[in-house]
Design a protein around this nucleic acid. Structure first.
Lengths: 142, 142
DNA sequence: TTAAGTGCAAAATCTTTGCAAATGT
DNA sequence: ACATTTGCAAAGATTTTGCACTTAA
């Protein structure tokens, strides 16, 4: 995964602080999206809870992270593809939400187009599959 | 929309109370899903906030309502199709979330199938389109 | 009659806001 | 040096829990 926290911050005209760098590092560790509670748990000693809220919000606004809500209404974050901008998130791939480990994966599969009924104009479409991920499937007790 | 609150309650072996009936009536008023805060606002004088939580949870467990999370992590509820059971919700149609009025519509369009990568087994797929709904489009100021 | 459901109070969480101190440019 | 960012405290909102009172069967 491409990741140079300093470059990303500079590119978006954000001040370079150790908290902001740590958040990006932590999120980049895994290809799956990470939930906010998980981030809190991992960074809780280094970063104040409120600061984490603010950093995640800024990152989402700037198009650095995209936010995926899971079934429970919990926010999950993943690094945006480089084509994401402040105005538009290109997260139109399929998400896979594992019902066993709760992780959300961004699959390399484009979301299929859907025909809208007359009068409805869709701007973005979000597709999320729920099931068992590869890791959980292979570690399954038979 | 099919709706006989008493019959639904009986069918699922739930006691018939006026609060439970009111919740079903209120949700059935609109074809769009209704958000929990909206329900609270409408029923707040008749039903305690805590009771509403409990009723909505039971209804979801029993397969009477299905819950759709919106972008903000707010729960929205719609009446399930009659084929929904306690074990499995058949809400595999497309949802349309209007970014103007915030309503969520259950469209009569089936969610397209998506091919999963090796190792991933999907149980259900959820597709949500974001955009402007028919009502908002037609009342739009030019 | 009695098991289940409701409402109220209160605890536990989660999220936002205000402000003084610390930090990056 | 100065504007921004952070951490803490506290307010606000949401969700859960416990328990006495009420209600449906």
């Amino acid at each position: 995964m491409r990741l140079d926290p300093s470059a990303i911050l500079k590119e978006h005209e954000l001040k370079h602080t150790k908290q902001r760098v740590r958040v990006l590092e932590e999120i980049a560790l895994d290809t799956a999206a990470i939930s906010q509670p998980e981030l809190e748990k991992k960074l809780g000693k280094e970063i104040d809870r409120v600061t984490l809220y603010r950093i995640l919000n800024i990152y989402e606004d700037k198009g650095i992270l995209h936010r995926i809500m899971d079934m429970n209404g919990t926010a999950n974050y993943a690094i945006c593809s480089p084509s994401c901008t402040e105005d538009h998130h290109h997260d139109e791939h399929v998400h896979f939400n594992c019902t066993s480990c709760a992780k959300i994966y961004c699959l390399e599969v484009n979301a299929p187009k859907v025909k809208m009924p007359a009068g409805y104009t869709a701007k973005t479409i979000n597709t999320t599959a729920y099931g068992i991920c590869e890791k959980c499937n292979s570690s399954k007790v038979q």
